Every structure is written in C-alpha cells, then in structure tokens.
Computed example of a mutant assay.
Amino acid sequence: MIYFGTYQFVKPILLLKDPDLIKQIAVKDFDHFTDHRTLVPENIDPLWGRNLLTLKGKA
C-alpha cells in the first residue's frame, strides 16, 4: 500500500508510505498543500510558527 487515509478524531489525514510520492508532494507540489495544522502558535515560538510545514494560504 502506497498511501491510506484515516481520521485523527474528526479530521481526515492522509498517510504516505512511498518515498517518491512523498518527494513529489513535499518538493514539487508543496505550494498546493497550504493551510496545515499549526503545531505551535507564531507568537509563542516564531521559528516553529513560521516554518514550511505551517504555511497558510492567501486569505
């Protein structure tokens, strides 16, 4: 199985297991996957609050 979906409580999550698919999404198609979950608020820790994994799309 290359990928599968599951739920974290009520939020759907996609889990990837194929390294080529991960590279495709993480490098080439990264700008299409915005609005990720915020792990640490930006005002608490600016380094983790403004990294690539927590980018927000245009409002």
Rank of each mutant, 00 (worst) to 15 (best):
D31T: 09
Q24I: 10
N43W: 12
E42L: 07
T38Y: 01
A26K: 11
P46G: 01
V10W: 06
R50T: 09
K58W: 03
T54V: 11
T54M: 00
N51A: 03
L21P: 01
L55A: 07
G57P: 00
D35W: 00
K11Q: 14
R37T: 05
N51W: 01
L52V: 12
N43E: 15
I44Y: 09
Y3F: 14
L15V: 15
D29Y: 09
Q8I: 15
L53Y: 07
V27A: 11
K23P: 00
Y7K: 15
Y3H: 12
G49S: 02
D31E: 13
L55G: 01
P46C: 03
L16V: 14
D20I: 06
F4S: 11
R37V: 04
D18N: 15
D18G: 04
M1E: 06
T38S: 09
R37K: 10
E42I: 03
D45N: 13
D18H: 14
D29K: 13
I44S: 05
V40K: 03
V10K: 12
P41L: 09
T38M: 06
L52D: 09
F4L: 07
W48H: 10
V10Y: 04
K17D: 02
L47N: 05
V27R: 12
G57K: 10
D20T: 12
K58V: 07
L21S: 05
I13E: 11
L39G: 13
H36C: 14
H36I: 03
T54A: 00
P41G: 06
K11S: 13
N51D: 09
K11R: 15
R50M: 02
Y3I: 05
F4D: 05
P12V: 10
N51E: 09
I2F: 13
F4W: 10
F4T: 11
R37H: 07
Q24L: 15
L52E: 05
I22N: 05
R50S: 12
K17N: 13
P46K: 09
I44E: 03
I22D: 01
T38K: 11
